[in-house]
Amino acid sequence: MYPRSFDYIAPASLEDAVRELGNAEFAKVMAGGMSLIPLMKLRLLSPDLVVDIGRIGGLGEIEDTGDHLSIGALVRHRDTASSDVVPTALRQAASWTGDVQVRNRGTTCGAVAHADVAADQPAAVLALGATMVARGPSGIREIPSDEFFVDALTSALAPDEILTEIRIPKRGGGSAYDKLGRRGGHTDYAVAGAAAWVTVSDGAVTDARVALTGVGTKPELARAAMEAIVGTDGSEGAVRAASERATEGITVIEDLYGSVEYKTHLAKVMVRRALTQALTEARS
């Protein structure tokens, strides 16, 4: 299975890469290629130009700057999954992305830029309140995660912008991600998944963010569940009550892997599990 013919370039710098993106009618950034190459082989995508960012230096690092963590564009799923500084939710999401070979090449930034409706790491970065740093022809732009995921396979990135880094604020608390994979357990894309981040003070939940994947048309905040858990004691009953509201205000979409009813139910289960684990971590 061959993709259609295309031109290929592997620039050595971000400036060159951004310039090249502007030089073709339909150019595509390639990082790990784990989503782009399958789509090109199926000829669902046929770019004129592939700009491979894989040879640009300085993008492969996870850096702790003091107030945030920076995940560079070439940090692979395996690096994110095995990091001891990345928050639990994103670590778990990366460790359950695809299989060993996919994690060896695919990048965290690529998974986020790709914005698949059932992908793992987008939900985690959304729950962690990350900021996406994009570089385009007119410079650098910061996009809050709440505005980043626009629709299925559609992010706020312009075609000539490169996601250079994901910044995760270091706000303490605890986080977790859980999913039911399409092949059972944690394997493959999420039939439904949830990421949660919480802070606890004097026994009360002071802040929370919960994000769903595989459920609606994009990775989305479960705002009703977030509101319901904040201010409670985070007890089993409080978590259960909040998770009951997992899909409130969200349009649940049926797909090959589940009906609306099934996904609604799974979303509640996943929110309950993610919140429970995140609270345990926040209290420890």
Binding site: M1, G33, D52, Q101, N104, R105
Partner: peptide, 15 residues
């Protein structure tokens, strides 16, 4: 040194 699905990598990427 890392396992890779060679059907999901371009030969030019392996330069």
């Amino acid at each position: 040194g890392r396992t890779t699905k060679s059907c999901t990598m371009l030969a030019v990427q392996a330069d």
